[in-house]
């Protein structure tokens, strides 16, 4: 009897109570109620009216939905790998015995704390204007830059650059991971006559693979929900070429107050994100290596 009492200490519930309340009231209940709303016609005024799958059918029939979904997937597939590759390369360079590593680390991380802000989006708008500074610099080296934000081909890329610019936090994770690779592995490989590139493929990359997975999943979740840069820089234009899913959701929910329809949209996005992340996790068994300590 006494033993069991010692084993369990119910005071723990008291400490985690805030989270339990928060989880139930602000996460679980909203999640379920949005599923319910997604089957209703609800315009903020009046009560939700059950309409079955009509909202979903409406979305799947809407060209705007498909356009936005395509744009969002393109955005994710461009920005996320680019950002992670960048973060990895810079982390590798920094992990050499570089003097002033703190200085570079700080500098590269700075954009990560600013990236989501309106101010940066405003700045981007100026930098990439047709007669803006980016094109000015390009013309110096004899390149006529495109109308970055005015052309449907380039606008999404330009907006995506805001995200890539914030590679700092992924870079810090890679740096921490690189520090954890035991030096002895490299020494042993050197004795076996392995060259730098071979060491990278056989030691560095496998050791970092759990961090690659973590970065990939978290960045993907974030990228699917991107809102601020597209909203401020291009308002989704030109020709809806930067009309990210978040913008469509915002328009439907908070401009037109179609709460039922936008709930359906948000559940579709949820399922898509889930599909992407679980595919990534599923594939990870073949490429992620966990050290023998775990």
């Amino acid at each position: 009897m006494k033993r069991i009492k010692q084993k369990y200490n119910y005071a723990g519930y008291l400490y985690i109570l805030p989270w339990i309340l928060g989880f139930l009231l602000l996460q679980l209940v909203p999640l379920i109620s949005s599923l319910w709303y997604s089957f209703t016609d609800y315009q903020m005024i009046g009560t939700p009216k059950f309409v079955g799958l009509a909202n979903y059918a409406k979305a799947f029939k809407s060209p705007e939905f498909w356009k936005s979904l395509k744009v969002t997937c393109l955005y994710v597939l461009m920005a996320v790998p680019l950002k992670i590759a960048f973060a990895l390369v810079i982390a590798l360079i920094l992990s050499q015995k570089i003097k002033g590593i703190n200085f570079f680390r700080t500098l590269y991380y700075l954009p990560s704390i600013l990236g989501g802000s309106v101010a940066i989006s405003v700045l981007w708008k100026y930098l990439f204007m047709k007669n803006g500074i980016v094109n000015g610099l390009l013309s110096k080296i004899g390149i006529t830059g495109p109308d970055w934000l005015g052309s449907p081909t380039w606008a999404l890329f330009t907006v995506g650059l805001v995200t890539v610019w914030q590679f700092g936090s992924s870079m810090l994770l890679f740096l921490a991971g690189l520090k954890n690779i035991p030096e002895s592995l490299y020494e042993a490989a050197s004795l076996d006559g392995a060259k730098t590139l071979r060491k990278f493929w056989s030691i560095t990359l496998p050791s970092l693979s759990p961090i690659v997975l973590f970065n990939l999943v978290m960045q993907m979740i974030n990228a699917f929900q991107e809102f601020t840069p597209a909203y401020v820089i291009t308002q989704g234009g030109p020709l809806k070429s930067t009309y990210l899913y978040g913008l469509m959701l915002y328009d439907q929910g908070f401009k037109f107050f179609k709460m039922g329809y936008s709930s359906a949209l948000s559940w579709i996005l949820f399922v898509i994100i889930l599909a992407f992340t679980s595919t990534t996790f599923g594939s990870s068994q073949s490429w992620v290596h966990y050290g023998d300590e775990s």
């Binding site: 339990i20 996460q27 999640l31 109620s33 709303y37 929910g253 936008s262 948000s266 996005l269 994100i273």
Partner: peptide
């Protein structure tokens, strides 16, 4: 419960925005 808490790290906040808005309203 701990796993549940960790899994909410991966819950996209945008999914909650509509119901939370109605709730707060």
């Amino acid at each position: 419960l701990f796993m549940l808490m960790l899994s909410t790290l991966m819950l996209p906040s945008i999914v909650l925005i509509i119901p939370r808005y109605i709730f707060f309203k």
